[in-house]
């Protein structure tokens, strides 16, 4: 494993939105790696920049936003420098993305077959018939019954869970190296969520693809991810192996997140809430962006903390006063 080029290595990525009200630094110096076959969880509150990070990777940041700095090394190639043609040829073929709301990701006026066949034929010169067979096989792979019939249906004829399976099947069509899943189960009910999680995990193992799983829900990634990055206000504040981070969180924000997840061993105790709200990106607090909400904040927090050098098994934190005593 050592020395092998990772599937993805993001270095110092900055994606800003140049709005009329000012510059929103949605992603502000994010670095992480995803190795082959690895599942990386990207966790954080709403507005912390998770989706924008995902869209930056595939070159689909909406204007007025754009990647202003950093490297996105995909199998060694810097996508931050790639032109639109190159990005288009990678999108859907080598890097696929699945979105949060399955009700909105499929075009309501086009049949499923149209939408899947066009995805196949965007990257391969094959006949419509062959493309249909590929689409059909992908539907089987994600557990959709009577796929031939379902191909001829429109999105509104599917339930939310089924639509998300169609989206996943579409993402799988070209057996990509990397799938970016942006909260794909958040809009689904718990049982369906469990099924989809289980299936995605299985698919990753079977195909050896890498997965970035974006969520605001720690409990979702707990059983899924190998490693985890915790984001706050456009920065990664803690990252490491999932077990390290969950068992001994270093950052007060991660600690707060874990405290707000219901779990068995703390039954009966009230859930801890992180007080306050995500700060506005246009008006970030000076120094550590978390300090207005942080129980451990002190005067030294008014200076922006750097992320620590990787210590024990890559566990890193961006905090001047981390929870070292508990670990």
């Amino acid at each position: 494993m050592e020395g092998e080029i990772p599937t993805l290595a993001v270095e110092g990525l900055k994606t800003f939105f140049f709005t009329k009200l000012g510059v929103a630094q949605a992603v502000n110096g994010v670095s992480f790696t995803v190795r082959k076959g690895e599942v990386v969880g990207l966790v954080g509150e709403s507005g912390s920049g998770k989706s924008v990070t995902g869209f930056s990777l595939i070159g689909l940041v909406d204007p007025p936003g754009r990647v202003v700095e950093g490297k996105i090394l995909f199998r060694g190639e810097d996508l931050a420098q790639a032109d639109e043609d190159r990005m288009r040829s990678l999108r859907g073929r080598r890097i696929a993305m699945i979105f949060q709301d399955p009700m909105m990701t499929l075009n309501p006026v086009l049949r499923i077959d149209t939408q899947m066949i066009e995805a196949v034929r965007a990257h391969e010169k094959i006949s419509e018939g062959d493309a249909r067979i590929r689409a059909r096989d992908a539907l089987v792979q994600v557990g959709i019954p009577s796929p031939d019939e379902r191909l001829k249906a429109y999105p509104h004829q599917f339930s939310g869970g089924m639509r998300q399976r169609v989206a996943i099947a579409t993402a799988l069509l070209h057996k990509p190296d990397l799938i970016i899943a942006d909260e794909p189960t958040t809009a689904l009910d718990v049982t369906i969520q469990g099924q989809i999680l289980h299936e995605v995990q299985k698919l990753c193992r079977e195909t050896g693809m890498s997965l970035i799983w974006i969520t605001h829900d720690l409990s979702v990634v707990a059983g899924l991810a190998d490693r985890i990055c915790v984001m706050y206000a456009g920065k990664i504040v803690e990252k490491g192996k999932i077990s390290d981070v969950l068992d001994s969180p270093l950052h007060p924000y991660t600690n707060g997140l874990i405290g707000s997840v219901p779990s068995h061993n703390r039954r009966g105790q009230p859930l801890a809430q992180i007080p306050g709200m995500t700060p506005s990106l246009l008006n970030l607090p000076q120094g550590c962006a978390f300090h207005p909400r942080c129980p451990r904040a002190g005067a030294s927090c008014l200076v922006e903390p750097d992320i620590t050098e990787p210590a024990k098994s890559d566990h890193q934190v961006r905090c001047v006063n981390p929870h070292l005593e508990t670990s």
Binding site: G92, A96, A119, A122, H123
Partner: peptide
């Protein structure tokens, strides 16, 4: 966006 993410 999803259509674009497919690379069409």
């Amino acid at each position: 966006k999803f259509a674009r993410a497919k690379g069409i």
